[in-house]
Design a protein around this nucleic acid. Structure first.
Lengths: 147, 147
DNA sequence: TTATTAAACAAGAATAATTCCTAAATAAGA
DNA sequence: TCTTATTTAGGAATTATTCTTGTTTAATAA
């Protein structure tokens, strides 16, 4: 992603453009697959050895508040973050703990229609998130993402 | 739940029947709505002031391994546990952080059929978990469950 | 019933992700 | 350029969870 685009993401949200924020945002787009704060720190270490882990958490929190990223909770002991802000679901591999985003407007439509017919009493639905749990076929080589 | 039933749950899984395990299991059934380890400790405090929090974690881990309960990850900073082992989905209230179980075999069937037609390449699905996010109607009085 | 023993427990220390605090640095607007 | 509110670095504090060790106990067999 171009430097100018990164800056635009920040300034569109009224955020001050700091080198740290640009670097974290770039790392989020580069790593893509749901990095943790620690993974971002490691990615940035070459270019930015002085960035504090607390700063990374601050920045990630700010990005969450501004709707630039989302937290993803997993079975691991830390929070992961997702730059993909379109509605999507998650594929979890029980074997390698890889999380993959799953976009499927047809499924979204199916769920929406289903819950328009079958309402949940006293509850107004805003969003869905389907966790699809299973395993990749053998010989797939996804990086292990826990621990 | 009767004492005898509680004991049966444990011994059916080949677990030693200890007062601590029985008490934790009973608390899980009593609290029902996805308690944390700390909530269980508090619930037990009157009857069982000496139980160690580490013991509660041990017991909960053992129960998870034996398929008596499941972990539920949320946006809060701690793990919650669920005694409901039938397939079900979760309703999250953004307002009060209440989590409710949602059983819907018709929905299960719908999802199953959908993904039998529309396969995910290179991935074998074992299970689904739909998070339904929204709000209870006003004047609902669900206890706040975070913090 | 009692003795044996592997498993479970209590207590508290250790760990690790995350948050908090404060002084110094800095981006943005005047 | 100057001003000021915001952001960052660095490190201490917090907190859920795990680990360790010595003690206790449930289950089994004699």
């Amino acid at each position: 992603m171009e430097y100018n685009e990164l800056i635009k993401v920040l300034s569109d949200k009224g955020l001050k453009v700091t080198p740290q924020r640009v670097a974290v945002l770039e790392a989020l787009y580069e790593i893509k697959n749901h990095p943790s704060a620690e993974q971002i720190r490691q990615k940035l270490h070459a270019r930015y050895p002085s960035i504090a882990i607390g700063t990374i958490y601050n920045i990630l929190d700010t990005f969450c508040e501004q709707g630039i990223i989302k937290k993803v909770k997993t079975d691991s002991d830390f929070v992961r973050y997702d730059v993909d802000m379109e509605r999507h679901h998650h594929i979890y591999c029980e074997n390698c703990n890889h999380i993959e985003n799953y976009h499927d407007p047809e499924l979204d439509e199916l769920l929406k229609n289903y819950f328009e017919k079958k309402r949940i009493p006293n509850f107004q639905i805003h969003d869905f998130n389907l966790q699809i749990i299973g395993r990749y076929a053998e010989h797939q080589n996804k990086p292990n993402q826990n621990n």
